Simulated scan of single mutants.
Amino acid sequence: MHDNAPDDRYDLLVVGSANADLVIGVERRPAPGETVLGSDLAVHPGGKGANQSLAAARLGARAALLARVGDDDHGRLLLETQRAAGVDTDGVLVGGAPTG
């Protein structure tokens, strides 16, 4: 006999991007062709897939992420952030290229 019971390990399995968002604040939006100086660079975990799995986990869902990150500081930041929220990151591949 064959067991057709659904796998209920996760409420949500996200297959998507995991990137680093590089943010520089400016006092105002530049006009076309104008250069406006910015403040210090801030790095935040991001990417549509990573954002979705993180939000779901923070809302109490059992979430997992399938993605790829680089073996670099940005990739480690993404993994640490996901794990701290309770996201299963066993399906995240590390290496092969820098984190997007």
Rank of each mutant, 00 (worst) to 15 (best):
P32V: 08
L13G: 12
D8N: 15
G86P: 13
V92H: 11
P32Q: 13
Q52K: 05
D21K: 07
A55M: 11
V23W: 01
D90R: 14
L54W: 02
V92Q: 12
D11R: 09
R62M: 11
A50S: 14
D40P: 00
A20I: 15
S17H: 07
H44F: 15
H44N: 14
R68H: 05
L41M: 14
A31I: 02
L54T: 00
A56R: 01
L41T: 04
R29L: 15
G38V: 03
G75F: 00
D7Q: 09
G16W: 04
A42T: 07
G49C: 05
V15C: 15
L65W: 10
A20H: 01
A20T: 15
V69K: 00
G49K: 02
V26M: 14
R62F: 10
L12E: 03
L13N: 05
A85S: 03
P30I: 00
E34S: 08
P30Q: 11
L12A: 05
G47P: 00
P45Y: 01
D73V: 14
R28C: 11
D72L: 07
G70I: 01
D11E: 14
G70Y: 07
L22C: 07
A61P: 00
T89L: 01
R62L: 10
N19Y: 04
A84C: 06
K48E: 09
D72F: 04
N19A: 11
A20C: 14
D21V: 14
H74M: 05
R68C: 09
I24T: 15
